[in-house]
Design a protein around this nucleic acid. Structure first.
Lengths: 169, 169
DNA sequence: CCATTACGTCAGTTCTATTGACATATCCCA
DNA sequence: TGGGATATGTCAATAGAACTGACGTAATGG
């Protein structure tokens, strides 16, 4: 039986059609990200949450008092998408809102104690995988990995992002 | 206005609650993967395909003649999930099936010329981002990145994987 | 005063994936 | 040879996460 085990796909075969397709890295990113989020997914399911809830929880935890608009910018989703997720987090008391002081239209977002606990639990899970992986690498690997991942991201322009995406958000 | 630009989240703040949560890497993986698959998503949409089609196309292209069961194992999805996607790829002639010689129950999968062309186009897109990112890193970075990503993956046991997942697939 | 902004929400749709139940053809062993 | 296991395909229902489009409300600020 041609069993197609994953080993078959680990060999870094790179065909040379001009662009040097980085096929091994393309696959690796898929596998690594799938298993990485899988850790959190299982834990989230126990609370009736999904991946989207995790993201909101994570970024609100990292940026206490951030606005809904800030969250939309960061996640790059529509407010309708965010709405369902955020509403559930509010109803289940994992996130709390406070009226903005300077601008009372704003709803400043904070994680509750329950939210902080969950987010920490998820961070421990995912960090365990990351740290385990880094332990198996050469000493300086972390810096290279961070550099690479940062370079993979389309960072928003320091200015003007809000202006560009003002509509449809 | 507290605008919450992404810059706010790039600083590698690491709180020290026992486990050393790798918060910066957790976020970085999210941003990097999102932008990485975004390149392909836009191209795929033009052909009426989604991310799932890309994965099938990619792995069939890398493993000509692989079986449906092999694909299910690799992607770790159910056959019902695969069915819709694979059916569309077959109907639109991006993938072809051939009866297995040794085992006539098997449907061996191959990409057609159209499939190979699309998969190559997608690989060029994604490789461009990867190579651009690597160009901005230190010379030896690629090896470290590959090591790290490989260590992040739950590779199936060399043997017995099929036995474990025989059901529900 | 009024346009703009921040937020919320209703309705409908798409895509991916799930569980569960069956159907068919083939393989292979007792 | 007969029957259980395997490989594949399919119907139906559901869930999660995203989308577009259209409104409504309240607060800001020129």
């Amino acid at each position: 039986m041609s069993d197609c085990r994953a080993d078959d796909h680990r060999a870094g075969v790179v065909d040379a059609q001009g662009q040097r397709p980085a096929l091994d890295l393309i696959e690796l990113l898929f596998f690594a990200y799938r298993d990485f989020v899988g850790d959190a997914d299982r834990r989230l399911a126990a609370d009736g949450f999904g991946r989207a809830h995790h993201r909101v929880l994570h970024f609100v935890s990292r940026n206490p008092g951030m606005t809904v608009a800030g969250l939309l910018d960061l996640l790059r989703i529509t407010k309708q998408s965010l709405n369902r997720v955020l509403k559930e987090l509010l109803e289940k008391d994992y996130v709390a809102q406070r009226e903005g002081e300077a601008d009372r239209r704003q709803r400043l977002l904070y994680v509750t104690d329950a939210g902080a606990a969950l987010v920490h639990e998820l961070a421990v899970l995912q960090s365990a995988r990351i740290n385990r992986a880094l332990d198996g690498c050469a000493p300086g690997a972390r810096i290279h990995v961070v550099d690479f991942l940062e370079a993979m991201v389309d960072w928003p322009a320091p200015e003007g992002r809000r202006a560009v995406t003002r509509e449809k958000r």
